[in-house]
């Protein structure tokens, strides 16, 4: 026996489907079947791919910035000379030495040059005095 509730619920008439609904669904489904790169104005890269690439680029920039700000030094063995012992130097030390040399260039001025020449002159005078000594 049908409950009176079921009978009343049946009085709600079904929703009518808008005209052309089927055609719109089929058309949209077929659009999705076309590869994105062949669509006019379509993207070559999907949004998730773009986000992944952006995140990777940000990570690389962050690492580079961190290293530039004095992060962990890069250590790599450097072999110098052909001697029996291989000299292993930190690249970091090489860069530091280079910085010192560049600093000398940057700081070079007349006073420094004078001191350098004086040192050379003094050395030369010493050599000359040695050469004048009776043998």
């Amino acid at each position: 026996m049908t409950d009176w509730l079921d009978e009343i619920l049946d009085r709600d008439t079904p929703e009518s489907v808008p005209e052309g609904f089927l055609e719109r669904v089929i058309a949209q489904a077929q659009v999705e079947e076309v590869p994105a790169q062949h669509q006019a104005g379509g993207r070559l890269i999907s949004f998730p791919q773009l986000m992944s690439m952006t995140a990777a680029a940000v990570m690389l920039l962050a690492v580079g910035f961190w290293l530039g700000q004095g992060g962990d030094t890069l250590h790599a063995p450097a072999v110098l000379g052909n001697g029996p012992e291989n000299a292993m130097l930190d690249l970091d030390e090489l860069y530091q030495n280079r910085e010192v040399l560049e600093a000398y260039e940057v700081l070079a001025d007349d006073d420094l040059n004078s001191a350098f020449y004086d040192a050379e002159t003094g050395t030369w005078a010493l050599d000359y005095s040695i050469e004048d000594q009776p043998r």
Binding site: P14, E15, S16, V17, P18, V25, Q28, A29
Partner: peptide
């Protein structure tokens, strides 16, 4: 099944909410 999908959405979401976009997405 389009009628059943529309009817289900209408009864769940009420008479004033647009449901065609949801019905289309369901079949997609």
């Amino acid at each position: 099944y389009q009628g059943a999908a529309f009817a289900m959405l209408r009864r769940i979401l009420g008479p004033h909410m647009a449901v065609e976009d949801l019905a289309q997405e369901a079949f997609l």
